[in-house]
Design a protein around this nucleic acid. Sequence first.
DNA 1: ATGAAAGCGCTAACAC
DNA 2: GTGTTAGCGCTTTCAT
Lengths: 337, 337
Amino acid sequence: MITTRQSDIAKKLNISRVTVSKALRDHPDISRSMKIKVKETAADMGYIPNLIAKQLNSRKTFTIGVVIPDLENSFFAYVADSIIDCATEKGYRVILTVSREKESVEKENIENLIGMRVDGLLICISQETRNTEVFSQIKRMNIPLVFFDRIIRDNDFSSVVFNDKEGAIEALTQIITSGYRKIAHFSGYSGISIGKERLNGYKTALKKHNIPLKKEWIIEGGFEISDGRNAMRKLISQGEMPEVILAVNDRVAMGAFLEAKKTGLRIPSDVCFIYYGFSETNNISSPSMSVINQDPRKLGIRSAQILLDLIRKKTNSKPVREILDEQIIWNKSKKKL
Amino acid sequence: MITTRQSDIAKKLNISRVTVSKALRDHPDISRSMKIKVKETAADMGYIPNLIAKQLNSRKTFTIGVVIPDLENSFFAYVADSIIDCATEKGYRVILTVSREKESVEKENIENLIGMRVDGLLICISQETRNTEVFSQIKRMNIPLVFFDRIIRDNDFSSVVFNDKEGAIEALTQIITSGYRKIAHFSGYSGISIGKERLNGYKTALKKHNIPLKKEWIIEGGFEISDGRNAMRKLISQGEMPEVILAVNDRVAMGAFLEAKKTGLRIPSDVCFIYYGFSETNNISSPSMSVINQDPRKLGIRSAQILLDLIRKKTNSKPVREILDEQIIWNKSKKKL
DNA sequence: ATGAAAGCGCTAACAC
DNA sequence: GTGTTAGCGCTTTCAT
């Protein structure tokens, strides 16, 4: 790679490299005419400042490091997009890393980002993550960090998450007061926080309205389309069908939806769906399903804002814990739900 | 931010910083016992090497810069994901920037990445991009660059693109030989390369089978869902309906599909759809549409591979121009198409 | 086997 | 106004 340095400009103009440095940064020391001369030659020579060198002595990189579990998941793609948007607007770059839901990869990514001396970290932990040693080190090193969407317990970092439990309670309350009482839940794994909270919301809502839990109607599995299909098959094989199915995420809902259609069930008259997700994933299912909408852009933007405030010390060191509300988007066919 | 430096380790052990540097890198100069001692204290002190400093004097960053038009577009999200995957595997980081289809933002991003002295660039130009001055500079600076998905004409950079024209010809030929002759095209803008090439393929395919072009059946517009809806409305208002519609991308197809359903058209018996896109976008439309499948992962991986080969001089400087084939995924309801 | 000196490209502090 | 000196954290000679 061929680059022009300040010293090259200095040599060409027969002046000191410091003069060049100052002139380029509009330092008041330098005369107007000299500034113009320097800037013109810099442009002529295609000078592009070496940020690495700048960073080394300012100990600021204007870069934030992001760790997400998976970019193919469009929820996270939207989050990443809005983080980049927000960061870029404020003059920060983004190094994006993907953990593939593996704790070990996550750890590598984080250490790598710290090695790059990013000014702050935005992390959504993997489903596997148990060991919190890395995070203690981050605390010790005093690196600004904001967890988003998923959090580790017992920490004093800032975080931004959705109000999972409340979402289910609100949605199911409305459904129940509309007269439905036969409600099943495809819950993913209740091992990870997201699964647990949503299941928790489901149970709480039913209890609140004195609807007894039916164990067969809480079907665990995974978080993928195939898991939704399996859950639906299992449900159908059991005989009695619910009127409403609450799915833990969009992919499970999709799988269940497709399987239901395949089996000849009419939607929404035989059974209808509501799921945790975000509106953009629901574009083409027909008839459309209802959504407990968790807006990824809101999540990304708030996380980035909080981190940047932390970096710029606009916040005192007390951790900010933000809980975002979801909106419920009802299926357009108002007949059902 | 509190960091441990090599000099801190040196001080603690009462040895020179150079010894520390060498010990950490397993330099043959240093004795086994000293290496162990140094590494242990480094670990104890939570030492994480400063890559910025390393980069400054090696003039290698092990970082590649990526510019994409939009991460909310799941096609590009998949591309980005696979680029990150491929780069990470080979020990490279990725700085991801988004141009939002704006030429000016794209230029800023590129200059920023060069400022960061990335080892190479992976660029998908915005729809607006006309001025190629930045790219000439990149050439002058001798920075490895690979264009993907969209290219600028008359350049000697490497590139990876899909065989747009050929895709339409192959798909339409099969459709025509199955007996269909009434085929419309929702073409986006024919101003940008992608629109032009696909339109070109459509025209060529019809000509090849002696089907006269109907101007009213080539409907321009944009590339979004709303544009698909508009195109469909326009088509319907014109009276005569085609049997098959070739859409320029998934969003246009989606809009057209939804509008057709809304109007009461039966799919696929009244009209059916085939579009440029990738299979994951077609999960839930029902009945499903056919796809001229352009696999974003293939695109991302090949681009990254070519760039990394370029960076590591495995390729001589001759530009590599790769054209990827698409696979046609037919609608499952074999009745139509 | 260990260390002193010099330098990567830039900037802050201090002369002249 | 302009230039000199020193240093950011690390590595690469080259002495000892």
